[in-house]
Amino acid sequence: MATYFGEVLSVYSRAVEEDEYDDLEDENEEDVQIRREIEEKREVQVRWCPEVSKTLESSGELQCSNMIIAVGPSAAGFVSAYVLSAEGWTQVGWVSLWNERSRGSSRPDTVPQPGEPSFIIYQQNSSPSVLICQCTCYIAEDQLFQCAEKVLSSVQRRGLNVTVLSDSTLAEYKTPDYLNGSGTPFLRALKTSSYTGSMLCPLLEQPNIVTGLPAAVLSHCQVQRIPAVLFQCYTDVLHPDSVAMETYKPALSCLSTSVKLEACPSVEVLQKFTRISDAQSNLYT
């Protein structure tokens, strides 16, 4: 029937068998159970090495002054070629997750194997208060915020500074001016309100936006009042190259006292992270 507002109301007949209601209730319970199993399977887990786990059990959080989060092939390649190869770094943890595009095991306790998409956490040997998170795997939308929250909740907030390195295609950059090839790649930055450091590149102009894990990390830091800055590199190449990697060097210049950068990585090191994958298929093969 309809009310005087024209709203249609559902009316159930008493002639309906009770068995049909029981079937609906059983079906709803089954849907809830399936949904619960999917949520448990897609839950993000942060795993730590035994030494770090003992520290977390005793103090509840890690003493960290600087955390660098590299997201994307170019940003992760820069960290590997210019940072991790310069000094002694040790893998102390990793993030295990499963989604529809992950190629690794669905077991949350599985250590990521070399060559697989991964989210690995490194700690500097000479300065344990510096952590690097290197993410090259796909993280689904429903996993972004829990991934950022679980990683950042493991470290102390007092005195913490977060630097996010991310890469994006030039096609996603919106500007009224024409951009030629000579002006790429370039950096743009976003920061939280509590960040007071110097800006080494222009701020990201409107209406450009940041998405994915970098946006989730920056949003978490804004809510928790953690000083954080995001440096996003816009490039016109699909695969990481040495030119795009060098673009990130000014972004870590403020951390030169605690993070040593390799001035000029060897050709072998650069080729390892700039190797272009072969085409899987095309019209002629």
Rank of each mutant, 00 (worst) to 15 (best):
E39R: 15
K41P: 00
S102Q: 06
S154E: 06
S129T: 10
A76F: 00
S253Y: 03
L131K: 02
L84K: 02
T175G: 08
G197F: 06
T247M: 01
C221Q: 01
S96L: 02
E268W: 15
L252P: 01
V243F: 05
A81M: 01
C221E: 04
C137H: 07
C64Q: 00
H239I: 03
S277L: 14
E25S: 15
D26F: 11
P214N: 14
R103A: 14
N180Q: 11
K249A: 04
E268A: 12
C64L: 06
S129V: 07
P214C: 10
R275S: 15
L170W: 02
Q143N: 09
V16S: 05
R103K: 14
E20I: 05
T3L: 14
E37C: 03
G197Q: 04
N282F: 14
L218K: 08
K260P: 08
L238I: 07
S258H: 02
C264P: 04
F273M: 04
T211V: 12
L200R: 03
E57T: 12
L203C: 12
S13W: 05
A228G: 00
V32K: 14
S281M: 06
S256Y: 08
P50Y: 08
E141N: 13
M245H: 06
P73M: 10
A2W: 06
L213N: 03
G159C: 10
L9N: 15
L200G: 03
T110C: 08
L165G: 02
C233W: 00
E172I: 01
Q45M: 14
W48I: 02
S118C: 09
P202L: 11
V92P: 01
K174W: 05
S53D: 13
P112Y: 07
D31I: 15
V130W: 03
S242L: 07
R14M: 13
S13N: 11
C233N: 02
E100K: 09
S126F: 11
C137T: 11
Q33N: 10
F78C: 02
S58W: 08
S281C: 11
C233S: 01
Q45K: 15
G159T: 07
V151M: 03
Y122K: 01
A76M: 04
V46H: 06
W89N: 04
T257R: 10
E30Y: 04
